[in-house]
Design a protein around this nucleic acid. Structure first.
Lengths: 124, 124
DNA sequence: TTTTTTTACGTATTTCGTAACCATC
DNA sequence: GATGGTTACGAAATACGTAAAAAAA
């Protein structure tokens, strides 16, 4: 490799989904106060968590104003991504749990097909 | 809503990316011992973390044998998903960090187009 | 003065490593 | 005994809540 490609590699290995949930709560609610209440905790908790996140990314995610918070450009981007991310995470965990509980299922539908024939087809 | 749809909702809100990294390490290395070494810690750490994950999902992810570990069906599914998930998370954080550092960039290429024209086009 | 965020500090929870234990080859 | 996984327990790190402080309208 003459020009070694820069492999991204883990950039912030101690950012976890909980922090992203806090971040999204603030992004949605518009204030740390409302987000904390929405999350069932006190204001300092998300404030600290998000400040740590910003430190780790070396990037401001919110513009703090006495009227609340506004997303920065980086914050807007992370907002979109984080939403998809925790949705995907939830789906993955749900799927794994379901598979473990019920085994991998395959639903086959074929109109006007004899059930026994279908069964033999699936079995093979 | 007569028949209220069952909204998936967060299923395991305290599973974080770190746990998924541990899980993937064991899945890849084949033993808890090798995974722990690969992660720079001692065997009990991933063992406990994954056992907690299995408890939370109410699903076995590995079959433990004296020769090492083997993925269950649920484990195989989670393995695929977790890999994409961590990759996506890393990409999202990297992107947010880059945007915060450099501002949102847009690379425009147009063969045989005058640079000044292109600039005015982008500016608008 | 009211609203919102941040810092300080003590406490509670979580995570980790060491060590001892169990199981299989 | 060698290898691999688990459990017990004490220590370190992390997260949280209360309280006090700073900043802006």
């Amino acid at each position: 490799m003459l020009a070694p490609a820069w492999h991204p590699g883990p950039v912030a290995t101690d950012v976890d989904l909980k922090h992203l949930r806090y971040f999204l709560a603030v992004a949605d609610e518009g204030t740390f106060t409302a987000a904390a209440e929405h999350l069932g905790m006190t204001q300092p908790a998300p404030s600290r968590a998000i400040r740590a996140l910003e430190r780790e990314l070396e990037t401001a995610l919110f513009i703090r104003t006495p009227q609340g918070t506004e997303l920065t450009e980086a914050g807007r981007a992370l907002s979109r991504d984080a939403r998809n991310l925790i949705e995907a995470a939830d789906a993955a965990l749900t799927r794994a749990a379901r598979i473990g509980r019920e085994g991998p299922r395959l639903r086959v539908t074929a109109r006007g097909c004899d059930v026994d024939v279908l069964q033999r087809l699936v079995d093979s």
